[in-house]
Design a protein around this nucleic acid. Structure first.
Lengths: 195, 195
DNA sequence: ACTTCTATCTATAAGGC
DNA sequence: TGCCTTATAGATAGAAG
């Protein structure tokens, strides 16, 4: 369906096709190049974050502001969950478990991050960003999905969710108002590894 | 300056030096391997995050919980700054623009979602699976859909698609939401990954 | 602003120290 | 953990759509 219009390399004296070249890690001057690079690397970063979370069964949260000042985020299992976990650790830091060494500083920072994540989640639920979300989903998530397993359960879960949505739909028909969602804050029954 | 003390490979029948091998992106069973991998990949992730922040002059925040539940973070310029920026912007954008999903846009979204489902189906047929992605998709993306008005159509399409699919399980997600605000950052290489 | 394609460059699995 | 080495899988710069 796609024909290579570009020859691998012309036999001419100049090489127009250079392939990848090593670049210095410094602010890219050209705004277009910067945007393209941001796009590619953001995808790569999120992909890496996802792989790390799966391979090691750990929680990961990433927030990035594009050159255009738009926020993008990735979270596993969910940014809110990660944020919550941080908050909980802070609360329990006096008790028995967790947070070795100097977690106090981190807790403060994380606390703030948690709030941010909270806001992001809130904004997201407004619904106006489905376009972007889907786009991102197609680009990045699908790629990751290739490596995963267990197709069977999800169908049921999604169906269940859709049933819930039907209820919401009914309500929407009656009244056009933004639906208020509850943040699923609280602990997740996350797999706990040793160590 | 460096001399190879190791022969490239013994000519024996077995290859003790295997170099890199492809691994499946799934939870590593061996705790030792998992820890080693976590360490290596965390370093790689932070490095990527740092490069992205420098190359594109953007702000980045990454938080990771190790298999041992210890928090590690990277932030450029630092997590607190990024968090604060988020909060400030949130309050500003509250009155300004945002939320304005029109009904016409919904049909577009519907089509896009249908496309996604098709692609998911394709992936499934290829034998590669979904584990993490769909769960998150359900939890987050679908939540947004609740706010849209053409819920019925969407639901039907999804249901139909799901019936075809033997889809199933969990996690993964990416959230992004456009939040417009003005401010410029242009910081240089700064790396801070605590341990 | 996103994507595709290709040639390279970089990250990293294994195995040892 | 950290630090090496090697071979290979994966990421991505540059150019164009």
């Amino acid at each position: 369906m796609q024909v290579h219009l570009l020859p691998k390399l012309r036999g001419t004296s100049e090489e127009l096709i250079m392939g990848r070249k090593k670049i210095e890690i410094k602010m890219l001057k050209d705004s277009n190049t910067r945007q393209v690079t941001f796009s590619k690397r953001k995808t790569g970063l999120f992909k890496k974050a996802n792989e790390l979370s799966i391979l090691c069964g750990c929680e990961v949260a990433v927030v990035v502001f594009s050159p255009g000042k738009k926020p993008y985020s990735f979270g596993h299992p969910d940014i809110s969950t990660v944020a919550t976990k941080f908050l909980q650790q802070e609360s329990n830091s006096n008790s028995a478990q967790c947070s070795s060494s100097s977690n106090d500083d981190n807790s403060v920072r994380l606390n703030q991050l948690a709030e941010v994540m909270d806001q992001l989640y809130e904004e997201e639920k407004r619904g106006e960003i489905l376009d972007v979300a889907l786009h991102q989903f197609k680009k990045t998530q699908l790629d990751k999905v290739k490596d995963l397993h267990h197709l069977a359960e999800l169908r049921c879960k999604i169906k269940a969710r859709i049933d819930e949505m039907e209820v919401a739909e009914t309500m929407l028909k009656i009244k056009e108002q933004p639906v208020v969602f509850c943040k699923n804050y609280g602990n997740e029954g996350n797999e706990s590894n040793d160590v």
